[in-house]
């Protein structure tokens, strides 16, 4: 393997990992507040379709991204209303949201199949992208990739050393106690769910506007589910989500690259690689049972009824 090939592999790895990072970071915040939203796939698709439609209508990819975020948030409001306000079963509601999103996005997007948009193109960061190798790998992406790093940094800092991070965790660990010290559990959970929706919508926009600028039904191809699993395997830690997503991306790319290089292995086995590698690495990282338990939001999935 020559340097150019490796550079390209790493470049593609980052691109492949980005939608997973966006979805998984959103879901992580959501789950840290104690809400399990299985509606990722539906929210991603709604973000993808509305983002694409907005791009077509306005002719601006930027508006498309905003619309995608908005679509994800709308979906999550629906989820929040049912699961937080009406205290419905979170698992069932999330699954319903996915089915709803898949169907509704197909319905809305039916007239937009086969249309082409300009999409978001790469933005090479001045100076930084001139660095040999590293510049090509890290600093020649589209703006959404940089945005994913920014969001990662913010969340990492938020849960490491801010009051907001502590508040969200408190609500996810023990909502009654949080309520007792004056935290509005409902507000925090709504906020977290909304953030999760916005991130899923953004990931959808990334797929339909930046990655493969087109709309076709079900184009997320299960990424919402992979991201959901990633959150758990990453023990609700932002840095492990980043690692896991890139690992998954790298293995996905290797599945394709190795075949082209004439590597004699069953492509079915290679296709399994991303899943196997990610799970193994993250499970090994989480092998300390006590620490893992500490990072698990204890009240995850449990409905909270405010005492009146």
């Amino acid at each position: 393997m020559d340097i150019e090939l490796i550079t390209n592999i790493l470049f593609a790895t980052i691109r492949t990992g980005t939608p997973l990072i966006l979805i998984a970071l959103g879901e992580m915040v959501c789950e840290k507040s104690g809400v399990l939203n299985l509606g990722q796939e539906g929210m991603v698709l709604m973000g993808a379709v509305l983002g694409f439609i907005a791009s077509v209508v306005t002719g601006h990819a930027g508006f498309g991204i905003l619309a995608a975020i908005f679509a994800g948030m709308l979906m999550s409001v629906l989820f929040g209303f049912l699961a937080i306000s009406l205290v419905s079963n979170q698992v069932a509601t999330g699954l319903a949201l996915t089915i709803f999103g898949i169907g509704l996005s197909a319905f809305l997007g039916a007239g937009y199949v086969g249309m082409a948009i300009d999409g978001i193109t790469a933005w090479e960061i001045p100076y930084l992208s001139d660095i040999p190798i590293i510049g090509k790998i890290l600093f020649s992406h589209d703006p959404l990739v940089y945005l994913s790093w920014g969001i990662f940094g913010l969340l990492f800092w938020c849960f490491k050393s801010t009051r907001l991070g502590l508040t969200i965790r408190a609500v996810g660990e023990n909502p009654e106690a949080a309520n007792a010290i004056g935290i509005s559990v409902m507000k925090v959970r709504y906020g977290a769910v909304l953030f999760g929706g916005a991130m899923a919508g953004l990931a959808g926009g990334y797929l339909s506007i930046a990655y493969t600028p087109m709309w076709s039904e079900g184009m997320s191809a299960g990424r919402g589910w992979i991201a959901l699993a990633l959150v758990v395997f990453a023990s609700w830690k932002a840095e492990r989500i980043l690692l896991g997503a890139y690992l998954f991306g790298a293995a996905s790319i290797m599945h394709l690259v190795l075949q082209g290089l004439g590597f004699e292995a069953s492509p079915n086995l290679l296709a399994m690689l991303p899943y196997a590698a990610t799970i193994i690495v993250l499970v090994v990282l989480a092998s300390d049972a006590v620490k893992t338990k500490l990072s698990t939001p204890l009240a995850l999935g449990q409905p909270y009824r405010p005492q009146v």
């Binding site: 797929l207 990655y211 493969t212 191809a221 394709l256």
Partner: peptide, 8 residues
């Protein structure tokens, strides 16, 4: 069917 993977 997986547009992103087909593209890669």
């Amino acid at each position: 069917y997986d547009p992103a993977k087909e593209r890669e």
